[in-house]
């Protein structure tokens, strides 16, 4: 009898184990995407480090926050895994820069697509919580909508009080739509279930439009927002090691 129970237990354990290993496709593990903020080739340092734009104007950065939404991980054979979530990434909060995605099948992903900002559906969905809680100060109440990206700092070239500059970029409606799609080739770039991305803030001031701190030191609604949106669409790349 005892033997019977033993062998029964053994079979049960084996069965459970096999159901796990039988279909490796279904194996799901967490995957993290880490956002490394850079200014050119140096890691971004708030307040203290002094940077230069294309016009030679110097500046410091005091705040850098943005939304990333609707990730699509794609494989060469056409599989598309979508994560319809919104993440708020803030230079000031270390944890926010590491996005942990639960239960992602261990496929060979070749591309990653996401949007900078918040899609129009979530801009119209009323009161929300988590990353979309208006408490995160990434929200316009009088002309409803999320601020997709906030970049603030100081530059001697800025004519605003205290040489301050602030760029609050958002807007989901044409012609001021600031949602931008990013598509990255990530073939063989995921190591140890982690993908490292480089986010270069200098791109925000560079291309296609060079930002002159003297002429434009404050953007807090749709005016000039699209210019910045076109610039920030070039801000992301896979980190080279």
């Amino acid at each position: 009898m005892k033997k019977f129970i033993h062998s029964f237990l053994y079979m049960a354990i084996l069965g459970v184990a096999m159901s796990f290993s039988g279909k490796p496709e279904k194996m799901s593990l967490p995957l993290s995407v880490t956002f490394h903020h850079y200014a050119g080739n140096e890691l971004l340092k708030l307040d203290s480090a002094i940077y230069k734009n294309e016009l030679g104007q110097t500046f410091t950065i005091s705040k850098f926050k943005y939304y990333i939404s609707n990730l699509h991980f794609k494989t060469a054979d056409g599989k598309d895994l979508s994560i319809n979530e919104t993440f708020l990434i803030n230079e000031d909060e270390e944890d926010s820069k590491k996005m942990v995605l639960k239960n992602l099948p261990a496929w060979d992903y070749t591309s990653l697509e996401f949007i900078i900002g918040v899609d129009s559906l979530h801009n119209c969905s009323g009161a929300q919580s988590g990353s979309l809680d208006p408490i995160n100060a990434m929200y316009w109440a009088w002309n409803t909508g999320y601020i997709f990206l906030k970049l603030e700092g100081h530059s001697p070239s800025s004519k605003s009080p205290g040489n301050f500059f602030e760029y609050h970029i958002g807007g989901y409606k044409q012609p001021n739509n600031c949602i931008r799609k990013v598509n990255l080739n990530i073939s063989n770039k995921i190591t140890a279930r982690n993908l490292d991305l480089k986010v270069n803030i200098l791109e925000l001031f560079r291309s296609p439009t060079t930002i002159d701190f003297e002429k434009l030191s404050s953007v807090t609604d749709h005016r000039n927002a699209v210019t910045f949106a076109d610039n920030y669409s070039n801000m992301f790349e896979v980190l080279k090691k």
Binding site: N123, C124, G126, A127, P134, A141, W142, N143, T144, G145
Partner: peptide, 19 residues
């Protein structure tokens, strides 16, 4: 909502008077 239609959902309207 509002005279200029700036608010797109009833739920988020009160953020305006509150803040």
């Amino acid at each position: 909502y509002m005279w200029d239609g700036g608010v797109n959902n009833l739920e988020v309207q009160p953020i305006n008077p509150i803040t």
